[in-house]
Amino acid sequence: MRRLAPLVALLALGGCHGQQAVLGGGGRDDALFGGLWQIFLIVTIVFYLVVLAGLTWAVLRRREGGEAVVRTTFYIWVGVVSLTLVGLSIASWLVDRTMNRAAHTGLTVEITAHQWWWDVRYISPGHPDQTLRTSNELHLPVGVPVQVILNSADVIHSFWIPNISGKQDLIPGRNNDIVITPTRVGIYRSQCAEYCGLQHAHMAFDVTIEPLATFQQWWGDGLLPARAPATPEQKAGYAYVTTRECATCHNISGTPATGKVAPDLTHFASRATIGAGTFPMNRGHLYAWLADPQRAKPGNKMPEIGLEPDQLHAVAAYLESLK
């Protein structure tokens, strides 16, 4: 076992740092899941070695022993495997139960997955005017248990913030939910964890864990309508976006753009990524996305509009102003 330890440590190092740490590190249930993961790892390593040893033994000394020996070994093996599997199932069940028991939650977020983006709604019970809709980003207060209600508009997706343990599928026509409690401030990356089509790999979003006061400030700011265009170029962009193809699918609060089938753009430029975690938010990628979305993220539902150069400049300028 002692020799194996460095190996195991090496494997684990892969998930130690960064925005997407597979072994958690930023959630309340990390210790539970980490422990479960270690139990599974050790058990499977032991069994792998036992099987290899048995095979070697069988190859080297195949002529010895009679049927009685084979039969006894077989019964012992079946017994050991069954007992171990039962043990692992119980361990897994216990961890799962513990996670779901966090009944008292301070916040409810509804997430609807689409091919290939995330529609996020913050619910304030009893205050429908406080409902905040955003897309492809999640802000959560640190230390508050959050109930995330999960649904899908098309195929099965899976909600997973690797840094915060816990993973749950989004199934069309069914409300799933999961309770997570972030314990560490930071910006993490969430990634769809169930293959959902062509752009499954580009279906991610940023999760910002922040102190409660900052979170409340962010929620309040999010409820404000979009900023009015200031420069002539932004005004031209506003005119295009709110009257042409963009407004058919996208919503920008406070403007005539009220489409509901595509990501909300009200505070588009305040997000860190474009296209559900596909590109960092900057002017170059914004132009590339607007000019030919099907080249930027093939298969996504945004069509090529065919903007003229001056229209492209105007639309980009307006979108960049939507802080």
């Binding site: 009257t243 042409r244 193809e245 407004a247 058919t248 069509p303 090529e304 509009i305 065919g306």
Partner: peptide
Amino acid sequence: GGKMTAAQ
């Protein structure tokens, strides 16, 4: 027209 692209 103008609300959807020609391809759509």
